[in-house]
Design a protein around this nucleic acid. Structure first.
Lengths: 230, 230
DNA sequence: CGCTAGATTGACATGGGTCAAAGCGAGTGG
DNA sequence: CCACTCGCTTTGACCCATGTCAATCTAGCG
């Protein structure tokens, strides 16, 4: 029995399935047997310790891969955005919990066993899986570089640039953040207050402007990247 | 032309090659065509921006995958220990510099083109490459969890546990650190002084003891993991 | 025996965590 | 249409941990 499909009775509608089919991705040939689910904010797609019976693909919205520390603090490992796969790395059990952070998030679940079996005799599929692993690697490395920054302003600045890159392929200077300041804080390993202060500081310094609480306009990419002090 | 083989005239000795052959690993079948090199401390195996013509395997010693920030600060992304592969993720160019941090480090370089070509018609090889990617993923995720810790003592404590796990598979409580405090500092994104202070604090609290500057004995694994405040 | 890189320790300023309070905004019910 | 409410966001006050600068100590090596 799998994690998500059993816990969410929502059946895939024509609309969400069409959304899935409209985008090209490595496991596309398995779309017909995918279980597509629309999730609420805060819902858990799968939980740490559960059997890992599915591979997941995020179609729309946003989710975080995280662990909960003994102190109760949540520690985010990965942020999943539309087009991202997750759950492929896991062994028999999930090593992290996947938590939906944006309302209306759509997740596709692919039966792991079925794909793994086919991969044993399908080189093309194996190549596609490697492709997914490579993208995940790249994502984690970017996040490592962000967490390695020293000041909070640098972290937040680099985070905004990374989001702009991932959400619109760097085309646009507008970033519509699909997560709350709390979620950003957990992702950047700082406190909520610090995220808020860093954002207002960046605004005061003229590196960004707000077009809404979660809609940010990037003004000075270079300064955001460098974290230049005044 | 490749990065390392051309820059290091050292020819593989029988000894180092025997060392390579003595260990079982995914690309083992290519060992006969691998270029094995012994590196000095500080030597660069490959540099950010260079053409990525080789896949690398660290046989002995230690190296760090890092980028240099505009401020001159070095930012480590990955720490390579014996048995680790690196350079597989790269596109046409290396996105990071690999710097040897322990004297007598032995690196094996495998011609990338040759392996990629064979992988196009060799499913077993493709599976082994996926295996390597999976191990890299796991390493980066562990590091993300360490960088996500709040206090320096937590970071250093978790780092020591991770090193114990990787160096002796968690069997032993002795950790022989193959890198300097400076390198640890870059890897944990804190200052050298903070690393030093954290270590002496952990010693004073009785969680570890020193059997030499870089030889640490782990006393209380649980407390190191939790970072318990007294 | 001195040299030098690495390691530790101290003094000091500050960035960011914590606690507390107030502001804001969207959805809900009257 | 408005008032209410509940999350989310921002701001302030305070203090500790950590970065920085500087000095000292240690160990390995010629």
């Amino acid at each position: 029995m799998g994690a998500m499909p059993s816990s969410t009775p929502t059946s895939p509608t024509n609309f969400t399935r069409q959304l899935l089919l409209s985008r090209s991705h490595p496991l596309q040939r398995f779309d017909p047997i995918a279980v597509v689910t629309t999730c609420r904010h805060g819902q858990e797609v799968c939980r740490q310790g559960q059997a890992a019976n599915y591979w997941y693909y995020l179609v729309a919205g946003a989710a975080m891969r995280c662990v909960t520390r003994s102190g109760g603090r949540r520690q985010a490992v990965d942020l999943l955005l539309p087009g991202d796969f997750f759950g492929l790395i896991a062994g028999k059990e999930h090593d992290t919990t996947i938590e939906v952070v944006a309302a209306g998030t759509i997740v596709a679940a692919y039966p792991r066993q079925r794909i793994e079996t086919q991969a044993q005799s399908d080189l093309q599929l194996e190549v596609e899986i490697r492709q997914i692993a490579s993208e995940t690697l790249s994502r984690l490395q970017t996040q490592l570089l962000i967490l390695g920054r020293t000041t909070a302003q640098e972290k937040v600045g680099a985070f905004l640039l990374a989001m702009a890159q991932r959400l619109s392929n760097g085309q646009s200077n507008s970033v519509a953040l699909p997560l709350s300041r709390y979620d950003i804080a957990d992702y950047l390993a700082v406190s909520v207050e610090t995220v808020s202060r860093a954002l207002t500081d960046l605004r005061r310094r003229g590196l960004i402007t707000f077009a809404g609480t979660r809609l940010i306009e990037i003004i000075d990419r270079h300064a955001l990247d460098e974290g230049d002090r005044e």
